[in-house]
Structures are given as structure tokens and as C-alpha cells.
Amino acid sequence: MTDQSNRFATDHPVAPEMPILSVRGLGVTFDGERERPFGPPKKIQALENITFDLARGKTLGLVGESGSGKSTLGRAILRRLPISDGRVIFDGKDISNVKGEALRRLTRDIQLIFQDPYTSLNPRMKVLELIAEPLLVHGIVSSIEEARDQVGELMRLVNLPLDALDRFPHGFSGGQRQRIGIARALALKPRLIIADEPVSALDVSVRAQVVNLMQDLQQELGLTYVFIAHDLSVVRHISHDIAILHRGHMVEMADRDAIYEAPEHPYTKVLLSAVPEPDPALRRNGDCAPEAHRPPELNLAGPGCRYRDCCDKSGGHCQREAPPFARHGGGHWAACWHVSTD
């Protein structure tokens, strides 16, 4: 690994046929309130039966509203949350039950980029310390100063000026701070990066900078991303596939153009119509607000489709039985009784 440009590239053989991440029937439950003192806590099913594959070097966009379970899914993949059902397979190995040293090693391969660059960086640490911290924690370097060269290289990757090394994060703009966060995530040469709303807190003009940087890094280093977002406006540009989450269920998954041009699930259509159109000439006439749409409530009682109470197509079948997450031609998956199956 003497080649400078590839210093942080993954040094593993690329096997396009084997996905780097496979999630099979994943479920996460949280303990809710107790109904009576010392009684058993109510179970809240935050994620249920999530299944997908993510190919090496690709990006999966995970989209859903607050409470849909998108961040929970990211954290479950990182193994920051106990998994109650199903398996997470990373690079061919089942990681749903690893612990101790193996779990620690896993964090080198899977890293996280946080949403808010204003609160996720310790204001008392210099940029050098911030970026070198993961290297130190994993024993790759024995002192901060030893990491200076490596950190400088990371700074170059994310287009930060080298003289920023000895400054504190408060002197940087939101976009620059998010670059620091990205450099920190890249320090351990991960193969999979979970980006939890990395641009939601940024200004529109800066969003584009960060999204473009992430795309460049993906090309240069062969990274795989899970890109979490709460709306459909930015994900199209970065994702190869997009999955829509609703109340802890995956309701639709397809390649990015299919989601935008031929959405199948009614919830996806609502999300699409809710994105404001900047050009007055192209603005849809009046129908943009999804009037009937209500925010998701967890633990909707009874069987049946989890979207039934928000859906105008909801019929008897939707009340009785939950639709399976089924394939509808090509790579298009959806969980709805109202779309035709092949």
C-alpha cells in the first residue's frame, strides 16, 4: 500500500456477486412503558422483518419520516442496538451475535457519519485530535502526533485545508464540520459507512458539496454507503437503490429511477408529492399536500397493512392481512395489496 491515492482504499478482493451487507428478517424491539409498576414493559416493535442486500461499492438510500425506524436500522447494522430477530450478514459473516473483541474489530469496517455536525464533534478537541481519535482507540497509532501524517492524508481526501489541523471545530462552517465528521469516519478505512442524515442540518448549497464529496470518495475508495434521509430530494443523486421505511416496515425498494418514475406504494407517492417543487412553472397544482396523511404511530393494533389508516385505497383485505414485501418485476419490491405481482 505505497500508492498515496489508495492509502485508504479497501484492500479486499471485490466479489460483485456477493453482497457486502445482507439483512435477513431483521427485527428490533424496544421496551416501552410498564402498564403497572413492576409489571412487564410493553414491547414496541421498532423494526419488523427487514430484508435487503447491498452490493459492494453501491449506495442504499433509506428514506422515512421520524419514527419510521430508519436510524434504528442503521444502528442495528452497526450493532449498537440489540437485534431481536433475524440476521445481519456483513461480508459473508453473520454479525448478529458477535461480541467483545470481534465486535470491536467490526467497528473498523462499519463506520457512522452523524447528522448534526454542530453537536457531534467535541468542541474541546482540535481537528487533529478528533480525526486521530479512532486511530488511537483502535491502537493503530500510539500517540496523536504519530497520526499527524495519516490525518493530513485524510484531510486531503475530504478537501480540508491542512492548516485546519490545530484549530477547534467552532471555527468551521457546517459543511466543513461535516467534512471533519467524514474524515473521522474514514480514518479506520471502513468498507461500509452508515450516513445518518449527513446533510439534513446543512444549507441547501452546502448539501451539494457534501453529497458530491461522498460520491467522489465512493469512487476513489470503493466505499459502500447506507444513506439515511428523511425525504426524497437528495437521495436520488447519491443512491443506486432506494428503500422506503414506514412504521418499522420496508414498504418499497427499487433502483433509484424506478422509485421516482414508477412508485408503487401509496406511501412512496405521498413522500414524492410532498417534496416541494422550486420552479413555479413546474409546480403541481394544489395537490401537493397529502391532506389525509397522518404521522406514523407505533403499535397500530391488530393485523393488516400498517399503512391502512393513512391510505385512501385501503379495503377489506388491507384490514385483515398485512401485505407481504414481494417482488413486482425487475428489482422492484413493494408491500401493498394494490400493486400487481408477477
Binding site: 441547501v204 448549497s205 448539501r207 451539494a208 458530491n212 436520488r236 443523486h237 417534496v275 422550486p278
Partner: peptide, 20 residues
Amino acid sequence: GLIRSTPRLDDRRARLVSID
């Protein structure tokens, strides 16, 4: 620049325009 960096749903381009 602002208008062009606003992502649009009908935009199939893989790259956003940014104001550096």
C-alpha cells in the same frame, strides 16, 4: 447557483451542482 443546487425530483443527473 442556489436554484441549481436545489435538488429536483425530475433530475436524473447523478451529480448535484454546488457553490464551492
